[in-house]
Lab assay of single mutants.
Amino acid sequence: DRHTIHIGDITIHLEGFSEEELKLAEELIKRGIHLEEVKRILEELYR
């Protein structure tokens, strides 16, 4: 499954994450956390 996060003019595609995980990812990215770090956090929390 493919999910999309929109932040301003930026569109990020993250596959294989639930709606809850994507909301967390979006919040972290909006707070300035680097995408690679966001992915690592999600994997630690949900895998």
Score class of each variant (00 low, 15 high):
S18V: 05
R40A: 12
K30T: 12
K39V: 15
T4F: 07
L14T: 04
D9A: 14
T4A: 05
I5K: 00
H3V: 15
K39T: 06
A25Q: 01
I12C: 02
E44T: 01
E26W: 14
E37C: 02
D9C: 04
K30G: 11
A25T: 04
G16C: 04
V38N: 00
K23M: 13
G32N: 03
E43L: 07
K39R: 06
R31H: 06
L24R: 03
R2H: 12
L22R: 09
L45R: 01
L45Q: 02
V38L: 09
K39E: 06
E27M: 12
E26V: 14
I10Y: 09
E36C: 05
R2W: 12
H6Y: 05
R31Y: 13
R2K: 15
L42N: 00
G16P: 02
R2G: 14
R2A: 14
E21P: 09
H6P: 03
G8L: 10
I41R: 03
H3D: 13
L24H: 14
K23I: 05
I33S: 04
S18Q: 09
E19Y: 10
E27G: 06
I5W: 01
I41K: 03
F17V: 04
L28T: 01
E43V: 04
I12Y: 12
K39D: 02
K23H: 12
E43R: 01
V38R: 00
K30H: 09
A25I: 15
S18G: 11
L45K: 00
R31Q: 14
H13F: 13
E36F: 05
K30Y: 14
H6A: 12
G32H: 04
L14C: 13
I7V: 11
L35P: 14
K39F: 14
K30I: 10
T11L: 09
E19W: 14
G32A: 07
E43S: 02
T11A: 10
K23C: 01
I41T: 02
G16L: 12
L24V: 15
V38S: 00
K30C: 06
L24D: 02
G16D: 04
L22P: 00
L42C: 01
K39N: 05
R31S: 12
I7A: 10
H6I: 09
E44S: 01
I41V: 09
E37K: 05
H6V: 15
E44D: 12
I12G: 04
H3Y: 09
T11E: 12
E43W: 15
I41Q: 05
T4M: 04
V38T: 00
E26Q: 10
L22V: 10
I7Y: 12
H3R: 00
I10C: 07
S18I: 05
E37I: 08
I33E: 05
H34P: 14
F17S: 04
L45N: 02
V38P: 00
G8D: 12
D1W: 00
I10H: 11
Y46K: 11
H13I: 14
R47T: 15
K23R: 14
R40P: 00
E36I: 09
E44H: 02
D1I: 04
L35T: 05
R40C: 01
I10M: 12
H13N: 07
K39C: 12
G32E: 03
T11Q: 12
E20M: 07
G16E: 07
I33K: 09
I7G: 05
H3A: 05
R31F: 13
I41C: 04
E20W: 03
R2N: 15
S18N: 13
L45W: 08
G8F: 09
D1G: 03
D9S: 12
E26G: 08
E19M: 14
T11Y: 10
E15K: 10
L14V: 07
L42T: 00
R40M: 09
E27N: 09
Y46Q: 13
A25C: 03
V38A: 02
R2F: 14
I29G: 01
L35C: 03
G16S: 06
G32S: 03
R40E: 05
S18A: 09
E27R: 08
E19C: 12
K23P: 02
E26F: 13
I7W: 14
L22E: 05
G16W: 08
K23G: 06
E43K: 02
E15W: 15
L22N: 04
R40S: 07
V38Y: 01
R47K: 15
R2S: 14
E26A: 10
L14G: 03
I41D: 01
E43M: 05
F17T: 05
R31M: 11
L42H: 00
V38G: 00
D1L: 02
F17M: 06
K39I: 15
R31L: 15
L28E: 00
I5E: 06
D1S: 01
H34C: 04
G8T: 07
T4V: 10
G32Y: 12
I12D: 04
F17I: 06
H34G: 14
L28H: 01
L22W: 10
I5L: 03
A25K: 02
I12P: 02
E44G: 01
L14N: 01
R47P: 15
R31G: 09
R40I: 06
G32L: 07
I12R: 02
